[in-house]
Design a protein around this nucleic acid. Structure first.
Lengths: 223, 223
DNA sequence: TATAGTATGATAGTAATACTATTATATTTG
DNA sequence: CAAATATAATAGTATTACTATCATACTATA
């Protein structure tokens, strides 16, 4: 799996970056270190100046890759959702039974990322944490409609659509397949967040509890 | 209802503000106008300087009420949740049947606020929109644990707990009452957001669809 | 009614942020 | 080897997010 993933490039909307960070060593260092730094200090405290210092480069050089840190966040989260989509498709592809397929899908998208592929410059474990803590900030903006039209969220939308279709495949009479799919994805991030910061607001206390919660919820709903 | 609400003061953690905005005319103008402005321009573009200009006052005067705009957001959203809690308790209080009680609760917390009470300086319709668009930003921070310990999120937590208890009252065997309660609250905000900005990711297209979605979900789950 | 206290306003100033622009210096490629 | 390209260094701007100080207005009480 790791070897396979290594050779697959996640296709990210070219409008998100000025210059493809995958195309150079500096670009890869930007991605690699920004993940570490955003995870450490949080998105609001993170700046291109600090990143430049960290990677022994210059603020102005980073601007040649990304217009601003918001675009960088869009890049990182798009990459994550693309990576997750790949895992989803890969691990459900061979499953014929719709219920089993959906269950596998839920397991994949709600689980905690525990292992870094250790081949690329991207640390998926930390990226998963960043998505939990920062993803909402990428779309809760006044620019969301423009950016959505520009296609900045296509990968995420495709993921939701895939799950939605799997839901309908299990029970075509269910009236809210898209809402359920978006609830699973977003709700999973939220349950993971609550587990870490508001434990009294969730019954998920172990890493795999969000999976159990949503598996039970969906199977009951579509029965 | 409006008259009653008018005389009820939402009790907000005193650490959130420097000086109680309810204690003066300037304070009320700060609240009133910040709601309009945050709704208009979004939280990131909103500044105390702009607010000062808008209310014909001074940046420095606003700092005498709130340390920073983050605290102001905590104040506004706390007020909203307190107001919603009040409505929840008020409208479910007389209902004896647990299922009916929970259904009413879901209806109250997932509905779109359509009417401004028009008595106070607080526009609940706009505040509801602000909560949909900005609430996550109040807790997706590196300071969340400290601020949680300080009690900045008590009202919200109490709301989740109330719903969680209603869930358990309907079905004490259900294993995830808190997760379900937090999913309803947070998921409702999310479905309202999707309805406005990512309509392909939801089946909720009318204002009351999130209510229908969650009513169906919960009743099926607890059956 | 004088005076003390409190609230607000005006002004100035600081450090950091989020950039843009220009020029210099490497490095790569043809 | 020259030209093109990438990166680095430096400087500069407007805005943000404050803090500090002082002036003034309004209020409450003796």
């Amino acid at each position: 799996m790791e070897r396979l993933l290594k050779s697959v490039k996640i296709g990210i909307n070219e409008k998100i970056y000025v210059k493809d960070p995958e195309s150079s060593d500096l670009g890869k260092r930007i991605i690699e270190q920004s993940i570490l730094m955003i995870n450490d200090m949080g998105f609001e405290r993170f700046t291109f100046k600090k990143l430049g210092d960290q990677i022994g480069s210059n603020e102005s050089s980073i601007y040649r890759y990304f217009e601003n840190k918001h675009k960088l966040l869009l890049y990182l989260t798009s990459w994550y959702w693309g990576w997750l989509e790949y895992q989803l498709v890969f691990s459900t592809n061979s499953i014929a039974d719709p219920s089993e397929k959906l269950e596998k899908a839920i397991a994949v998208v709600t689980r905690t990322t525990v292992e870094d592929s250790a081949f690329s410059h991207i640390n998926e474990v930390l990226l998963n944490k960043i998505v939990i803590n920062e993803y909402s900030k990428s779309y809760l903006t006044k620019e969301v409609d423009t950016e959505n039209k520009e296609g900045y969220f296509v990968i995420y939308k495709r993921l939701v659509t895939r799950i939605s279709e799997m839901v309908s495949a299990v029970n075509s009479d269910y009236s809210y397949p898209s809402s359920l799919a978006s609830t699973i994805l977003e709700g999973s991030l939220h349950q993971h967040f609550l587990k870490d910061h508001f434990s009294s607001l969730t019954d998920c206390h172990k890493d795999d509890d969000p999976t159990k919660y949503f598996l039970h919820l969906v199977s009951t709903l579509l029965k």
